[in-house]
């Protein structure tokens, strides 16, 4: 296992928030290595630092100490713009809250992500957006606005949006958090097929042990640390 190069690696990763008098240590000393094509789930009680870890890996915020390597690049040494570019090219994000743009339709939300990726040609963009939405089972509802969609459907739009550039790494923060079992399984199917057919590396936060068990490996966190790692195969 040591021979396989890791696509993601954190070394002594720490993040604390200064709240005036007190300091919140959201992540304290995480060493984690994820191989290309691995499907990893992260579990842990609320407030243990799962989202913070994911944001740090995605370069959305800088750590207080430690490093994050994406492939061989230490992204903590990159500028904000360089980290943004890295996200654009290699990382897809699905947020804990879906964060769709309310003024845009499902299709518009996906097209916006394409625009950010620098995709040319509106027509081709719309077709590709429809294709992605069809793939997550929303082919019929591409023209609807977020408020006209169920929570599960909104989450699937967010996933379609994250897949626009077919990123090597998909970071998903509780993608099934607010969903019933059926919707959850539907999303898991999408993730599994991405992982198996396209070899995408997936890091997924979940509170559901059954969902977590579908991953190759489950990391358990508590108080900003990794307390246990379970191989699920």
């Amino acid at each position: 296992m040591e021979q396989v190069p890791s696509i993601l690696r954190t070394v002594g990763l720490e993040k604390s928030y200064d709240l005036g008098r007190t300091k919140v240590r959201a992540v304290c000393g995480i060493d984690l290595s994820v191989q290309k094509g691995e499907f990893v789930s992260i579990m842990g009680p609320s407030g243990c630092g799962k989202s913070t870890l994911l944001y740090l890996i995605g370069g959305m915020t800088n750590p207080t100490r430690g490093s994050v390597f994406v492939a061989d690049t230490d992204i903590t040494h990159l500028s904000d713009s360089e980290r943004t570019a890295l996200r654009r090219e290699r990382i897809g994000f699905v947020f804990q809250r879906f964060n769709l743009f309310p003024t845009l339709s499902a299709e518009g939300n996906v097209c916006l992500a394409q625009e950010i990726q620098g995709a040319r040609g509106r027509k081709a963009g719309v077709e590709r957006a429809r294709e992605l939405l069809k793939w997550v089972g929303l082919g019929e509802k591409a023209g609807r606005r977020p408020y006209e969609l169920s929570i599960g459907e909104q989450q699937r739009v967010a996933i379609a949006r994250a897949l626009v550039g077919m990123p090597e790494i998909l970071l998903a923060d509780e993608p099934t958090g607010n969903l019933d079992t059926e919707n959850s399984w539907q999303i898991m199917k999408v993730f599994e097929s991405l992982n198996e057919k396209h070899g995408q590396t997936i890091l997924m936060i979940t509170h559901n042990p059954e969902i977590a068990a579908r991953a190759d490996r489950t990391i358990h966190m508590r108080d900003g640390r990794i307390v246990n790692v379970e191989e699920d195969d």
Partner: peptide
Amino acid sequence: GILKALGASKTY
């Protein structure tokens, strides 16, 4: 914030 998370550059 979402735009940035999606990789939107400052220019964009």
